[in-house]
Nucleic acid binder design. Sequence first.
DNA 1: GTCTATAATTAGATAGAC
DNA 2: GTCTATCTAATTATAGAC
Lengths: 197, 197
Amino acid sequence: MAAPRKAKSTDNATRRRLIEATARVMRDEGYAAATSRRVAAEAGVKQALVYYYFPTMDDLFVEVLRAGADVALHRMRAALTDDDPLQVLWAINSDARVTSLNTEFMALANHRKAIRTELKTYAERVRDIETAAVTVALRARGVDLEEYPPVAISMLIAQTARSLCNEDTVGVTHGHAELRALIERQLHRLADPTPRS
Amino acid sequence: MAAPRKAKSTDNATRRRLIEATARVMRDEGYAAATSRRVAAEAGVKQALVYYYFPTMDDLFVEVLRAGADVALHRMRAALTDDDPLQVLWAINSDARVTSLNTEFMALANHRKAIRTELKTYAERVRDIETAAVTVALRARGVDLEEYPPVAISMLIAQTARSLCNEDTVGVTHGHAELRALIERQLHRLADPTPRS
DNA sequence: GTCTATAATTAGATAGAC
DNA sequence: GTCTATCTAATTATAGAC
C-alpha cells in the first residue's frame, strides 16, 4: 500500500467540497436553504454535478450528518485519554459550528425518515462513547456511579452546553452567566468528592 | 360591553383555524412542510385565503409563535401560585407538542430575521416569568439563592425536559431513565435543604 | 370572506454533449 | 467528471369573480 491517498475514487475532492459546502449553508442559513443549486454554487460547481455524486438531496444530507458525527466521535475518543473528559465534553458541545448543525438535523429528522434513522444511529454511538469517557473521569475521581450515573452526567453536560449555544445563536443570553457558573461549581463538586446527603 | 366575543373581526374562527393548522403541520412534518397549500388544506379552506389573513407566510409563522408563547406564559403565570412551580416547569417543557414546535422555530429563526427577532422577545419574556416562579419556590424552601440562582435552575429544568422530549421524538431514549432519576433526586435535594459542602 | 385562475419563481432530478 | 439545457412539479403571491 504505497498510496493511501485516493484509495477510493468516491473520496473525491469535489465530493468532499460538496459535503463541506452543504454543512456551511445549513449552519448559516438553515437546511431549507441547502438546495442543490445553492450548495453547488457554494462549492464552486454546477448544480447538476450534485446528482452525479449523490442520487438525491437526502443522500447528501445523510453524508453531511455522517461526516459531522465522525468528527465528534473522533474528538470524544481522544478525550478518553485526556486529563479532563468532562471539560472536553463541555467544550465540544459548546462549539457553535457543531450545535447549529445539530439543531438543523434535529428539525430535518422531524420529517425525513432516512435522516431520522441515521441521526438515531449516530446519536446513540456518540452517547456511548461520551458515557465511556465520563465513566473514566468519574471513577478516577471516586464519584459514586450509582448516584451520578455517567450516562446522565454526560447528557446533562452535553445538552446544557448545546442549549446555551443554540440560544446564543438567536441572541438570547439572559441567565447564561449564572447557568455556566452553576455548572462549573457542580463539576468541581464532582471533582472533589466530599459531601452528599 | 354586552358582547365580548367578536371584539375584533380579525379574531376570526378561520384565522384561528389557520394558526392551529400551521402549528399542527409544523409539529408533525416540520416547518418546510408548512406551505400555504398544506396549511389551507389542513384548515379546510383554499390556498389563496391564507393571504387574505396573512400578508406573507412569515407573518403566519410569527402568529403561530406568538400563540404558542402566550399559552406557555399563561401556564407559567398560573404556576406562580401553584404548590410546586418546579414540577410545573418540568411538566410544561416535557410536553412534546410544545417542544417540537420550539425546535422548529429555533431552526426557522436561523435564517429568517423576522422570526429570530420575535423568538428572542418571547424567549426572554418566558424566561423572566419562569425565573419568577422558581424564585418563589426556592425561597419558600429556604434554598440559598446565591449558590442556586433561580434563573439558572429554571433554565436547567426547562432545557433538560426539552432535550429529553426532542430525543424521544427522533427515537433516541438511551440514558433517559437515568437522567430523569438524577433530576428528580436533585429537585428533592433542593426541596429538603440540608447539605452543601 | 371565500373562491378560481394564474403569474412568476424555484425546486429536484434527468439527458446528453464534451 | 463536469457541463448545458430542460422537464416536471411545487411554491409564494396576486387579480378578480362571486
